[in-house]
Design a protein around this nucleic acid. Structure first.
Lengths: 150, 150
DNA sequence: TATTGTTATACTCTATAACTATA
DNA sequence: TATAGTTATAGAGTATAACAATA
């Protein structure tokens, strides 16, 4: 990992992250949600039903902001709270069928973004993207745990 | 592009976009910027000096929000306005050296996210990521130009 | 007449902190 | 005593619309 080739890859990853953020903003407007709400839908699509605390933590929100977020999702019929079976303090957040419709809608966009990837490359592409995502999440967690910069 | 293999790739792309958004939020806090400000720095790192209008458009902001954004960047010494050589209505936005320090800081994070990619794969990885980013941007532009959903 | 950018106002979303309930 | 969630308040960031300057 040396020199111009790495620079290119970093540059491309930067561009992809920006493209992802733009996609999020545009799609959110299209389906009538805010950016944070659309992120939550995507998060629940990836992780399945999840505690409200985990949702808020992983989206970088405080508990109060998490409450407000899930309130809005419930009001719009996108997700529902359900009580945690063991712990009565907690609640699980679950997509409604309308929430899953939004997921399906976004699937079309993501599929067309992968249109150029040949069928024989799809498996290794999936592995590659997932691995980069995991590394990025690890790095974010490290930064979050460290002190401020400069 | 059929069946479970595609689902995996879409799933991975969804996870990568989420990881990118989390990275943005965490890094922004680390360097003392807001999310939109950090997006602008990244945008300028990818595209070089750029008109304020292009910056605002590509970040999904109105012109008024673009003015406020660049005002904040200037106030924090991250970027500067300079007059457009041909068109006196326009202004170019350019990173200062402090802004480029922020870019360098983020480069370390992105490099470590690519740590698992072998040197011999870096070139094709860069091409792949870039192509997905371009397709995603095309799709976002299409959605933006269409009517609202459902 | 169209485009770029600025200004002023209002609104949405999130952070913060104090609080309740449960573990 | 610690954790999950709620509530109330304040603040940051953005949208909107009217405006000025330039093309």
């Amino acid at each position: 990992m040396v020199g111009a080739r790495e620079d290119d890859a970093v540059h491309s990853l930067r561009a992809l992250i920006l493209a992802g953020e733009r996609y999020r903003s545009v799609l959110a407007g299209y389906v009538g949600l805010g950016v944070t709400e659309a992120q939550a839908v995507s998060y629940l699509a990836v992780h399945g039903d999840r505690g409200q605390k985990e949702l808020a933590d992983d989206l970088g929100l405080t508990s109060g902001a998490g409450t407000a977020l899930v309130d809005r999702l419930e009001r719009q019929g996108i997700a529902q709270r359900s009580p945690h079976p063991q712990d009565r303090r907690r609640c699980l957040v679950r997509l409604t069928s309308r929430g899953q419709d939004v997921v399906e809608e976004s699937r079309h966009c993501l599929e067309s973004a992968l249109r150029d990837v040949g069928a024989e490359e799809l498996v290794q592409t999936a592995v590659l993207l997932r691995r980069i995502a995991e590394r990025l999440n690890e790095r974010s967690a490290q930064i979050e745990a460290s002190d401020a910069w400069s």
